[in-house]
Write a protein that binds this DNA or RNA. Structure first.
Lengths: 220, 220
DNA sequence: GTCACTAAATGAACGTGGTCATGTTTGTAA
DNA sequence: TTACAAACATGACCACGTTCATTTAGTGAC
């Protein structure tokens, strides 16, 4: 039997607040499982790492994994949460940029350049995020949250006259998320064709200016 | 042991061309497996139907399934091929429509309204198509083919001055596929918010005209 | 310390997708 | 007819994700 006591550096707290020994152990073990799994996924690929190997690396039994993550793929969804945090951060950081198109480029550039997984791990992560978006009924969903966070930004852009008022902010946000997703997909399938941030920027420009040939010479 | 001889109505051909007996049998059994599987997926959902149940319904052994489809999910990819055929058909059918934006609406409208699966089956199918796009190295890929088929259409649109020449046709096609995918996703996650064809049309218009506020009153 | 209570850990067992060694059928050629 | 090879079918078997009845151990009351 494996005996692993994660006493760590917070033993003092245990005496202070009730349940803390159990609860901190719980949080720490979840993090431990997550980190070990991530490390192994990076080294050998998601499909090639078994739950049993992850638990062995943590010194726990196979069944224990499922006390912390309902499914193997929830490790990847947990990763998605990191992206969400980055998104929040970026929106706050660039809220002062007055040109909305530029602000969007900065926001997405931040999200894309920070969370740099290996492309292969990124692929399975995105697929799992999409799968849970489509197949799992749940209160929150990463994609929906992205939309919700972008909506006020478009409302503002319409209000200050940088975006045409003919579409509603929510729909604009939704389409932009689509552009983002597709740029990611396009880059993941052909990474040799340039940087993913530049690809997204190009698609955003296309979206912003429109495809149609404008009358006469078209502006900037 | 199950003895199932699919002699069918083409026994005559067998005498005519060599190998035909074997080959037609092969095609027919593949089709039989496909149809039985599809029926069961529709009735009970993809995840709730086992390969063994499919083969039992066809009167064959489990292992035989894998002589016809390398994986369970290839049933769904086979479904994707139907969509591809629809796409070909639609491009040919509407090649005479001179307004390119209108033509695109007709093409995608055709594809979307014809292949009407239950949304749930559509979800797993799209996810498998995306998974194979991202994870399987293969010569052809549905998404890539869509792009390739749309590219000359955009080249033409640029040539006749309906689309701004500032982007290249391939990139325009790529972005349009993204719009299509995202419209599908948006509809699948919230089907109550209207028809999927109208949703795509709205997004196409947005893409075509652009988001930005144009100087003065914006045209048609 | 002891006891009852409960959260957490455990690993055997299960279900299912996928493999493989083996057996069988079919087409071909002597 | 017979011999042979290739295609095809078979189901026991395996690997891995997931479940669950049982055991272990933290906790609070006395």
């Amino acid at each position: 039997m494996n005996v692993v006591m994660f006493v760590r550096d917070n033993g003092g707290e245990a005496a202070l607040c009730r349940e803390s020994l159990r609860e901190t152990r719980k949080k720490e073990l979840k993090e431990e499982i997550f980190l070990q799994a991530l490390r192994m996924f990076k080294e050998r690929g998601y499909e090639n790492v078994t739950v049993e190997e992850i638990t062995a690396a943590c010194g726990i039994a196979k069944g224990t994994f499922y006390n912390y993550f309902p499914r193997k793929e929830h490790i990847l969804l947990h990763l998605g949460q990191v992206k969400r945090a980055l998104f929040d951060e970026a929106i706050a950081r660039y809220s002062g940029v007055t040109d909305v198109r530029q602000r969007l480029k900065l926001i997405f550039g931040h999200v894309m350049s920070q969370s740099d997984l290996e492309p292969d791990l990124m692929k399975v992560t995105i697929l799992e995020i999409l799968r849970s978006w489509l197949l799992v009924e749940q209160e929150w969903q990463l994609m929906t949250e992205f939309e919700q966070q972008l909506t006020p930004l478009f409302a503002e852009a319409i209000a200050i006259g940088q975006v045409s008022p003919r579409s509603n902010p929510r729909e604009l946000a939704s389409v932009l998320v689509g552009i983002y997703l597709h740029a990611l997909f396009a880059w993941l399938t052909k990474p040799e064709q340039g940087d993913k941030v530049e690809l997204f920027n190009a698609h955003l420009d296309m979206m912003w200016d429109g495809m149609k040939k404008e009358g006469g010479a078209y502006g900037a």
